[in-house]
């Protein structure tokens, strides 16, 4: 009985395009919902997720000396062989890298170098804007790596984009977890 009624109801609905009207109402409602677009990089930028693996950086210890002991484990474990380390011994007899180069064009940001490092010297930070017109520019040396921004937990921020923007782009730092774009998607 009720099923038959349901069926007639559905047929009457079809005859008067109830389904099409529903669809139109839905899209009309969506038209006035807030867009999820973040206008990168014109108007806004956001911190990536706190565990985001971005550009590598090298750490210094408390005395300001580079932490890296040039054991070359990172170069060994790297699946795409993009790290090149040449060690030297300083006057105190400590091992340090004379040359520490990462070819960012080849890096796949797996983070294995960070896991392998016994001295906690290399990690993948928050920077994600380092595109370049020349792959040669993407080979980053030791001193550049020391200056790169760190992780979000240790105060790593995003440096300004290389694109020319009209005014300074603000980074929203109130959210340490990064921007959850999926939070703004309307679910019905």
């Amino acid at each position: 009985m009720s099923r038959a009624l349901d069926r007639t109801g559905i047929w009457i609905g079809w005859a008067f395009f109830a389904d099409l009207a529903n669809a139109l109402a839905l899209t009309f409602g969506y038209m006035f919902s807030r867009p999820v677009t973040m206008q990168y990089p014109d108007k806004e930028k956001w911190l990536p997720y706190s565990r985001y693996r971005g550009h590598h950086f090298l750490k210094r210890d408390d005395e300001g000396e580079i932490k890296c002991v040039a054991c070359e484990l990172c170069a060994r474990i790297c699946p795409c062989y993009c790290i090149e380390v040449i060690p030297y011994e300083d006057e105190k007899g400590n091992r340090h890298p004379a040359k520490f180069e990462i070819d960012m064009a080849r890096c796949l940001f797996c983070g294995l170098c960070e896991d392998a490092c016994p001295a906690d010297a290399i990690a993948l930070g928050q920077q994600y804007e380092f595109s370049s017109f020349s792959s040669r520019d993407l080979v980053i040396g030791r001193d550049d790596l020391l200056g790169k921004p760190g992780k979000a937990a240790t105060g790593g921020g995003v440096v300004s984009a290389r694109l020319n923007t009209e005014q300074d782009v603000l980074v929203e730092t109130s959210e340490p977890q990064g921007y959850n774009w999926w939070r703004n998607i309307r679910r019905t």
Binding site: Y30, M31, F32, P35, V36, T37, Q39, D42, I185
Partner: peptide, 14 residues
């Protein structure tokens, strides 16, 4: 614009 907003985008902005 209408297309963008119906799909929760912004459409042309630049």
């Amino acid at each position: 614009k209408v297309a963008g907003h119906m799909q929760q985008r912004m459409g042309p902005m630049r």
